[in-house]
Write a protein that binds this DNA or RNA. Structure first.
Length: 401
RNA sequence: GGAGGGGUGUCGGAGCGGUUACGAGCUCGCCUGCAGAGCGAGUCCACAUGGGUUCGAAUCCCAUCCCCUCCUCCA
């Protein structure tokens, strides 16, 4: 087992050793939700994973800033608000509150910022203006487009050439110079809220929203960008193009860490498929510990079928484990505890192998180590107390003061 | 075309170099007025294919075949 954390980087399509930045905290950004509806199990999986990733990085001693955006400007929100007969802004605010409740319910406690993109419109306008000024963008039919022909590295994340990318054109329009160009600013849709800009009242493009948030808080480069792998193209590809065109700093993000999707009925869970299971429902039925245990028992890069029976079994397993809880207390042998934790780290260091780490924790709760050898209750409890903090699952009963 | 994940006994599903995982189903037995539940035993030690490394591979390496997911918006 190689020393230190190794993670899979989509950009290089391979596992790499994680090297922290030369100075300052590890800066982590993950794509957050568009608040058109409540959080579903797929979102929950994603957020639980990145939360765990950040907990683990902190456990390793890194200082981490973890930022997530909330997309609260979107046609789907306007549409949902109209169906509900309320104003879009009110609708978005209510859904954001619901999201915060679900995030809390899931034990996602690592965020240093969970920000609404609508508060970053001035930055989006500034970035768009700068791209226009430097010739990386142009106007056509009232829309400001990013000129992908000017950026030579498009496709680096998806590992595809421009020709291959063109097989899947985005944002169809006859006014674009190139099939691959994407919008930075466009006129407001009818009935939608309007935002002032030098190019008329309108809306920011999707991709510039995240770039505005991260450039504000993280500057020209940051360390880890997360999100599900469905976002690689065009979203993440566009983010890279915008940022690097503007700053010339490559790579814009050092490690791209994409997670897999949750499926239901063989297809990815999504509103349009109509196969959604809401996070709030599984939380109330099974509890945060069981839900996290279930999510983390699948490796983050793996797509998996949402199986409620399996989740129910996790709940039972967790409940029976808690019937005779280990109590964190005195009498632990520091050396033995450290050996157990180093074993745990060995697992997590291999591209965040949470399924095996969870298995290890469950065994430890039964006072058995990874080799099936018995562990003293005091040592197991002390190690589990730390592991609980990393996985966000309570395996021990903390001593009440 | 690209990327990721897989191919294990009837099914589901572990396994990460060396003791039959486990669960479900099925079969038989015990129990029972019958059925079920429960208990016990069994379901011939299975791992996509072909090579290789090794004293030893489902587990590591190479090649091949097949399956699933994702690549408009989307976590």
């Amino acid at each position: 087992m190689p020393e230190g954390l190794v993670l899979f980087n989509t950009l290089t399509a391979g596992k790499e050793s994680f090297l922290p930045p030369e100075e300052g905290p590890v800066k982590v950004f993950s794509c957050g939700p568009t608040v058109q509806d409540y959080m579903h199990a797929g979102h929950a999986r994603t957020y639980v994973f990145y939360d765990t990733m950040v907990r683990y990085l902190r456990h390793l001693g890194h200082r981490v800033e973890f930022l997530m955006n909330i997309t609260d400007i979107d046609e789907s929100i306007e549409a949902a608000a109209e169906r509900a007969g309320v104003k879009a802004a009110d609708y978005a605010s209510a859904r954001i509150e619901a999201y915060r409740r679900d995030m809390d319910g899931l034990g996602i406690s690592t965020l240093s910022g969970f920000v609404r993109v609508s508060e970053y419109v001035p930055q989006m306008i500034r970035l768009t203006a700068a791209l226009l000024e430097r010739g990386y963008a142009y106007m056509a039919d009232g829309i400001v487009y990013f000129d992908t022909a000017r950026y030579p590295h498009l496709g680096q994340l998806a590992h595809q050439s421009r020709a291959e990318l063109k097989l899947r054109p985005i944002e169809l329009s006859e006014h674009k110079k190139d099939l691959l160009d994407f919008s930075l600013w466009r006129p407001a849709p009818s009935g939608g809220a309007r935002m002032e800009s030098p190019w008329g009242e309108g809306w920011p493009g999707w991709h510039i929203q995240d770039t505005a948030v991260t450039s504000t808080h993280f500057g020209q480069r940051y360390d880890i960008h997360g999100g599900a792998h469905e976002l690689i193209y065009p979203h993440h590809e566009a983010e890279i193009a915008q940022a690097e065109a503007l700053t010339g700093v490559r790579p814009f993000v050092r490690y791209w860490v994409h997670c897999g999707l949750v499926k239901k009925g063989g297809r990815k869970m999504s509103k349009s498929e109509g196969n959604i299971v809401y996070a709030k429902d599984i939380l109330s039925r099974y509890g945060a510990d069981a839900v996290r245990l279930y999510m983390l028992s699948h490796h983050y890069r793996e797509d998996f079928e949402f199986d409620e029976g399996e989740l129910a079994r996790k709940k039972e397993a967790y409940a029976s484990m808690r019937e005779r809880p280990l109590k964190a207390g005195e009498g632990a042998d520091a050396g033995a505890v450290e050996r157990l934790l180093s074993r745990f780290r060995g697992l997590m260091n291999d591209d965040f192998d949470s399924p095996r780490a969870v298995d290890f924790a469950v065994r430890l709760a039964g006072r058995v180590d990874g080799d099936g050898r018995e562990v003293r209750a005091e040592d197991a409890a002390a190690a589990l107390s730390v592991i609980s903090g990393v996985l966000g699952v309570n395996f021990v009963e903390e001593r009440s003061l």
